[in-house]
Lab assay of single mutants.
Amino acid sequence: TTLTVNTQTYTFTSEEEAREFARRYGAKTIRKTNGTWEVHG
């Protein structure tokens, strides 16, 4: 199964959650914005 996250942004309140998600789905960018963490595919 392949998950494609081209134009979607996922927002997390903790860096740990964001990094775990990025690691699991191979997202390329993690960015902190206004106190939340954004993961970009």
Rank of each mutant, 00 (worst) to 15 (best):
T1R: 08
T33M: 10
E16T: 07
Q8D: 09
E17T: 03
T33R: 10
E17V: 04
R23M: 08
A27R: 05
S14D: 08
T29G: 05
T1D: 13
V39G: 01
T2I: 13
E38C: 10
T1N: 13
E38D: 02
R23A: 10
A18H: 00
H40Q: 14
E16N: 06
A18M: 02
E38A: 04
Y10F: 11
T4V: 13
A22H: 02
E17D: 08
G26E: 04
T36E: 09
K28H: 15
G35M: 03
T29L: 15
G41S: 13
F12V: 00
G41T: 15
L3Y: 04
T36K: 11
A22N: 01
V5R: 08
T4L: 11
R19L: 13
R23W: 05
Y10E: 02
V39S: 01
F21G: 01
A22G: 03
K32F: 14
E20V: 02
T11Q: 07
T9V: 15
A18I: 00
N6A: 11
V39I: 04
K32N: 11
G26V: 02
G35H: 04
S14Y: 03
R24A: 06
E20H: 03
G41K: 08
F21I: 02
T7D: 12
G41Q: 09
E17F: 02
A22K: 01
I30Y: 05
K28S: 13
K28Q: 11
T33P: 10
I30V: 10
R23H: 10
T2Q: 14
A27N: 05
W37L: 01
K28W: 06
F21N: 01
H40G: 10
I30R: 05
E17L: 06
T1M: 11
N34E: 07
F21W: 07
A22V: 03
F12W: 00
Y10V: 07
T2W: 04
S14P: 00
R19E: 12
T11D: 02
F12M: 00
Q8M: 11
E16K: 08
E38M: 05
E20S: 05
L3V: 13
Y10I: 07
W37M: 01
S14E: 05
E15F: 12
R19C: 15
V39F: 01
Y25I: 15
L3G: 14
G35A: 03
Q8I: 12
G35D: 08
R31S: 08
T36W: 07
E16F: 07
H40R: 10
N6T: 11
T2Y: 04
E20N: 06
A22P: 00
T33Y: 07
R24W: 06
L3Q: 14
T7A: 09
L3D: 13
Y10N: 03
R23G: 07
V5I: 09
E16V: 07
R24Y: 06
T4Q: 12
A22Q: 03
E15N: 00
G41F: 15
R31M: 12
Q8E: 10
I30L: 05
V5S: 13
F12C: 09
G41H: 14
T33E: 13
A18Y: 01
R24S: 05
T2M: 11
T33D: 13
T9A: 07
Y10K: 06
Y25D: 02
T1K: 12
F12G: 00
R19T: 07
T36V: 14
H40N: 09
T11K: 08
A22D: 01
Y25V: 14
E20R: 06
S14H: 03
F12E: 00
T4D: 14
L3P: 14
T36F: 12
Q8N: 10
K32P: 04
G35N: 07
T11G: 03
V5C: 15
T2H: 14
G41M: 15
R23N: 09
F21S: 01
A22E: 04
E20Q: 06
R19G: 03
N34D: 13
G35L: 04
G41D: 08
G41W: 15
K32C: 15
H40M: 15
R24H: 07
S14L: 03
T2E: 14
E17Q: 06
E20F: 03
V39H: 01
E17W: 02
I30P: 02
E16L: 07
E15S: 02
Q8W: 12
H40V: 15
T4H: 13
V5H: 14
A27S: 07
F12T: 01
A27K: 05
V39Y: 01
Y10W: 12
S14A: 03
I30E: 04
I30T: 06
E17M: 06
Y25L: 12
L3S: 14
F12R: 00
N6K: 06
T11C: 15
R31T: 13
F12K: 00
T11A: 06
A18E: 00
F21Q: 02
W37V: 01
E15K: 02
G35Y: 03
N34V: 02
K32E: 09
V39P: 00
T9L: 10
T33C: 15
L3H: 14
Y25K: 04
S14K: 04
G26I: 02
T11S: 09
V39R: 00
E17A: 08
T13I: 08
T13H: 08
T9G: 06
E16H: 07
T33W: 07
A27W: 15
T1E: 13
W37D: 01
L3W: 03
N34M: 03
I30H: 05
R19D: 08
T33S: 12
T9S: 08
S14T: 11
A22I: 03
V5W: 06
T2P: 11
A22F: 05
W37I: 02
R19F: 09
T29H: 11
T36Y: 13
T13V: 07
N6H: 10
T7L: 10
T11R: 08
A27F: 15
I30C: 09
I30G: 01
E17R: 03
